[in-house]
Amino acid sequence: MNILIADDEEVLRMLIVDTLEEEGHVLTEAADGHEAIECFKEKTFDLLLLDYMMPRMTGIEVIRKVRETSDVKIVMLTAKTQQRNLEEAKEAGADFFLAKPFSPLKLIELVTELEER
């Protein structure tokens, strides 16, 4: 799968990249919302892993922007305290949520499941 990971934390990007590349996916990194939008202009992706809290542009704003042109599957990485904002994210077009801190094995499971659909 062609996956875009948008997170401002380098460590988390590294974790996700290392986890999913081993499973044979192709990963592209974006350090914030703007970069994510830029990546979407250049390429198409099968899956977008999106951090909720990012500088400059929040995850929700990124979803709205992405949904203008694409129906890519979107998984939001959130902290539990942001639960109350999940409705908003769902409305904006997020498909799945993964709470931080997350298990890499669970992430693999989720991605595999999404791939099989």
Partner: peptide, 8 residues
């Protein structure tokens, strides 16, 4: 965020 790194 750091916990996610450590646990992951």
């Amino acid at each position: 965020t750091p916990l996610a790194g450590i646990l992951g």
